[in-house]
């Protein structure tokens, strides 16, 4: 018997009983960028029983400044984030069961993955996914912890179904433009601060200490030295379509899903086929080799560079079109090279 968790057990609100609780729990993290990396490492070190991580992207050089699980080698190999993350997380704590899913977390994926988990950590970079996550959480009765950051600013809120307002109560509708793209950049302390807020709340939930939850919307700006907390209980609406008495879960319906998304600060557009398909990357590689441009492939994705654009094709049919923010241009390139 080693003393791996002794310091956490000495912390009386957790104790040996709390540690035992943590080891039986299953947490799902949506997104494995900066926030996801931080939360995953914290949970694995804390001795979570099972961890499922989902992400649609692969490691790039611009990630390394703040996404703590990744290395230069991962960027060179363009490894999918969850694959790179899993190998690091398993090296940190081999007793945790880590499940890595390379996918765009949309309705079907999220409903499936969230089944039976104890907690969902939001580490996405967009509100579209958060709205789906919010509905899934309400439908299945699983708590989730919102977290986001841009520049030196960060924000977090813990959503407990049937108790607190949900994200739709707070936002009223999906924020458009300006909020998701990190044109303002990001510094790692903001990431770490959001992760700290999310993980403190996560530990409370995992050990069942719901009374100790913060119960407030929290935000901070580390550069401007500001900190703010707001008690938002009053914003819970009984008429809310996502958590109210006559709920319809609007973000789980097909009409509210878009099939293309401009990625956060990446000069990239993601295109997702309307039906789930599996792409044969080997065949595609042969086809594209006949065209101008450069094709590279690893077991998870194929990258095709032509003039100033790069198309990255994943096995699940998704394509990232880099070098444009214009959805119609991205679609044109998609159809030109991938049919």
């Amino acid at each position: 018997m080693n003393h791996r968790y002794s310091r956490q057990e000495l912390f009386s609100p957790i104790g040996k009983a709390g540690q035992q609780q943590i080891s039986t729990k299953h947490t799902l993290i949506i997104g494995m960028g900066a926030l996801g990396s931080g939360s995953a490492e914290a949970l694995v070190r804390a001795g979570i029983g099972q961890l499922t991580i989902v992400d649609r992207d692969y490691v790039e050089w611009s990630n390394l400044q703040r996404q703590q699980l990744y290395t230069e080698e991962d960027a060179i190999n363009r490894l999918p984030k969850v694959i790179a993350a899993k190998s690091r997380l398993t090296a940190i704590n081999s007793s945790v069961e880590v499940k890595a899913i390379i996918a765009d977390a949309s309705v079907e994926e999220l409903e499936g993955l969230a089944h039976g988990v104890d907690l969902i950590i939001d580490a996405t970079d967009n509100f579209e996914t958060r709205m789906i996550l919010n509905d899934v959480s309400q439908k299945l009765g699983v708590p989730w912890i919102y977290g986001a950051c841009v520049g030196s600013y960060g924000i977090s809120y813990t959503i407990i179904p049937e108790k607190t307002p949900c994200l739709v109560c707070l936002l009223e509708n999906v924020p458009l433009g300006g909020l998701t793209c990190d044109t303002a950049g990001i510094i790692s302390p903001s990431v770490n601060m959001v992760v700290s807020h999310q993980m403190s709340e996560a530990l409370k939930i995992l050990v069942g200490d719901f009374d100790s939850l913060r119960k407030k919307l929290v935000s901070f700006d580390l550069w401007k030295n500001q900190f703010s907390e707001i008690q938002v209980d009053r914003l819970k609406k009984s008429s809310c379509q996502s958590c109210g008495t006559e709920r319809t879960y609007p973000y789980l319906s097909f009409e509210n899903q878009t099939k293309t998304a401009v990625l956060c600060g990446r000069d990239s557009v993601q295109i997702r086929p309307s039906v789930l398909i599996e792409r044969d990357l080997e065949t595609l590689e042969r086809l594209l080799a006949n065209h101008e441009g450069v094709v590279q492939r690893n077991p998870y994705l194929l990258s095709y560079t032509v003039s100033q654009h790069r198309l990255v094709v994943f096995k699940d049919g998704r394509v990232l079109v880099h070098g444009t923010k214009d959805i119609s241009e991205a679609k044109a390139l998609y159809h030109r090279y991938l049919g």
Binding site: L35, A123, D125, A148, I230
Partner: peptide, 10 residues
């Protein structure tokens, strides 16, 4: 007055 604004990055 307390003002909190929502952001989406992560």
């Amino acid at each position: 007055i307390e003002i909190v604004h929502f952001v989406g990055g992560g």
